[in-house]
Amino acid sequence: MKSVKLSTYPGIRVNSSINEWNKEIENKSNYDIVPGKVYSYNGNIYFGTQNKNIDNYWITIGNPDKFTSWSAMAKYTGTIRELSYFTSWDKAVSAGDLCKVGKDYYVFKDGGNTSSGPEKEPGRWQKIYLNE
């Protein structure tokens, strides 16, 4: 784990612990994906969106892109919305979009394409843990 500026990723301007995927799974027979944890793989950022234990089979063939289809991770899209964007229930979003609420960030983890934001639909969003 290393602490770096996420400023190389559009819109995120805070320090965060980014967990390099290959180092996280190295020499492990299973691994727990952690909701809210920030991962990097092949130059992309991923966010854990649900507790998911992966066994040795998935460790050897898997990568974060495989786990986005399980809804265990979301790949950062580069889009960050302010909470004020969500003025109605049908605002366009994609899995991997972020919403900034005060100093906190939430990642959209649902398979849908509209939302009314993390305050009104907390089950569709995962708070991500960024160190400020």
Results as ranks from 00 to 15, higher is better:
residue 72 A to D: 01
residue 104 D to T: 01
residue 108 F to Q: 01
residue 31 Y to E: 00
residue 13 R to H: 14
residue 36 G to W: 02
residue 16 S to H: 01
residue 126 Q to S: 14
residue 62 G to L: 08
residue 93 V to T: 06
residue 100 K to L: 09
residue 13 R to M: 11
residue 12 I to H: 01
residue 113 N to F: 15
residue 58 W to Q: 05
residue 79 T to M: 15
residue 26 E to G: 08
residue 92 A to Q: 11
residue 49 T to P: 00
residue 75 K to G: 08
residue 37 K to P: 03
residue 121 E to S: 11
residue 92 A to S: 12
residue 70 W to E: 03
residue 63 N to P: 02
residue 66 K to A: 09
residue 96 G to A: 04
residue 52 K to M: 10
residue 107 V to F: 06
residue 86 F to C: 04
residue 71 S to D: 13
residue 41 Y to T: 12
residue 37 K to Y: 04
residue 51 N to Y: 12
residue 18 I to Y: 02
residue 72 A to W: 01
residue 131 N to I: 14
residue 51 N to H: 12
residue 34 V to M: 08
residue 95 A to F: 02
residue 48 G to T: 03
residue 102 G to W: 08
residue 23 K to D: 09
residue 62 G to P: 04
residue 101 V to S: 10
residue 116 S to M: 10
residue 78 G to N: 14
residue 111 G to F: 09
residue 41 Y to G: 07
residue 9 Y to C: 03
residue 111 G to E: 00
residue 102 G to V: 00
residue 118 P to C: 12
residue 32 D to Q: 13
residue 72 A to Q: 01
residue 42 N to Q: 15
residue 101 V to W: 13
residue 48 G to I: 00
residue 124 R to M: 14
residue 100 K to D: 06
residue 52 K to E: 03
residue 89 W to L: 11
residue 122 P to R: 03
residue 129 Y to R: 01
residue 27 N to P: 05
residue 97 D to Q: 13
residue 5 K to S: 14
residue 41 Y to R: 08
residue 14 V to A: 13
residue 43 G to W: 03
residue 27 N to C: 08
residue 1 M to V: 11
residue 95 A to P: 02
residue 63 N to H: 04
residue 72 A to C: 05
residue 41 Y to S: 13
residue 76 Y to A: 06
residue 27 N to S: 11
residue 6 L to N: 03
residue 98 L to S: 06
residue 16 S to Y: 04
residue 1 M to T: 13
residue 11 G to F: 14
residue 43 G to Q: 07
residue 80 I to F: 06
residue 100 K to T: 01
residue 93 V to Q: 05
residue 89 W to C: 05
residue 130 L to Q: 07
residue 25 I to E: 00
residue 60 T to F: 04
residue 62 G to C: 07
residue 109 K to G: 15
residue 125 W to I: 12
residue 91 K to G: 06
residue 39 Y to I: 10
residue 102 G to T: 00
residue 39 Y to P: 06
residue 66 K to P: 00
residue 25 I to P: 00
residue 109 K to Q: 12
